[in-house]
Design a protein around this nucleic acid. Structure first.
Lengths: 184, 184
DNA sequence: TTGGAATCGGAACGGCGGACCCGCTTGCTG
DNA sequence: CAGCAAGCGGGTCCGCCGTTCCGATTCCAA
């Protein structure tokens, strides 16, 4: 990895940058040729550095997901766990709706996507925030980490279907605040 | 349409039945060849009866959507508008999560899908139920018919991502019940 | 029964997109 | 500076899918 030829390293970086941009805009749907063209290289060069389109995608989103997880861990000891939880939830939704790559990554059926476990890290860290908020009585109790992830996917679908409708996010947030017993 | 040859009419019916089954299972993603095979006819026969795959899809879902609209109109004069609204909402979600075709139909960016206006009929009828529930104070006021459709799409995304998690639907329902001012 | 037209069915076409390969280029090393 | 291996690129193959075409078949009416 370190003893690559200089031009190879340069091209690898160009491909990563182009992929980040292209995936952010159109998600996994972007053709690999477009990424190659944007990077100013041939498709073969992309395959020299990454075994498949999927691998390239994961290389692009992995550190962003880890960033999310890191951020969540840093917030795990904060005061006001309720406010912290909701702020974080909103931030994740906002980031993801600006970046189709994150969207697709979160929406992929859990399991085969991040074998490195970045997805699990994220879910675990988020679940910790959730548990604290629940302990503080700020979030209903009948929800767990997996539910949270599903809700995020749902919010992203709403955002994609009707962009710029932030008040719908509030519906979900209020639903999370509600006591479980409210339901008929 | 009436003076078709007997076998033609029979084949048309077989295609419609096969399409209904296949679309219900896999949505628009199902290859047209599969539908033809399931119907026991050739692809050419499908195209004799429907100008495109999209047209076939609409022929399949159109009357179901209209059925929804009809049902909503029938409920528009019922007592207890709040309960009626929530029941209807849940029923739509349930039906759609059992039928990928309805799912895809509702998720398609509004506009080019049902030029006959079945989609608009549905939205209008649902909006009427919504307005009555809001007038009765059972649903928050900062929501309109389009928001509702977006929420449905979101709920369907949740259901598809994590099947069988009905309690997440309750989160949204409780969010709809909540007064708008609850949000920080 | 039979002629011919409507219908059938699946082979063929075209476009798209992911993966691979091979002749040419380029940069490292001695 | 020269030689060679690593790297490059895009042309190519392959599979998938919507659509079209046409020879074979079936139905209807005279």
């Amino acid at each position: 990895m370190e003893k690559m030829r200089a031009d190879a390293r340069r091209n690898r970086a160009k491909v990563l940058a182009a992929a980040e941009e292209a995936f952010a805009l159109d998600g996994l749907a972007v053709p690999l040729d477009d990424i190659a063209r944007l990077a100013g290289v041939g498709a073969g060069t992309v395959y020299r550095h990454f075994p498949s389109k999927e691998a390239l995608f994961q290389a692009v989103v992995l550190d962003r997901i880890q960033q999310f997880a890191e951020e969540a861990r840093a917030l795990a000891t904060a005061d006001e766990p309720g406010a912290v939880f909701f702020d974080y939830f909103v931030r994740v939704i906002r980031q993801a709706s600006l970046n189709r790559a994150i969207c697709d990554a979160l929406a992929e059926s859990s399991g085969h996507a991040f074998k490195a476990g970045a997805g699990d890290e994220f879910r675990a860290a988020f679940a910790e925030l959730l548990a604290r908020a629940q302990a503080a009585g700020a979030v209903r109790a009948d929800i767990d980490g997996d539910d949270l992830r599903a809700l995020i996917v749902g919010c992203l679908a709403v955002e994609r279907y009707a962009p710029g409708t932030e008040h719908l996010l509030r519906v979900v947030l209020d639903g999370l605040r509600a006591a479980a017993a409210t339901t008929a």
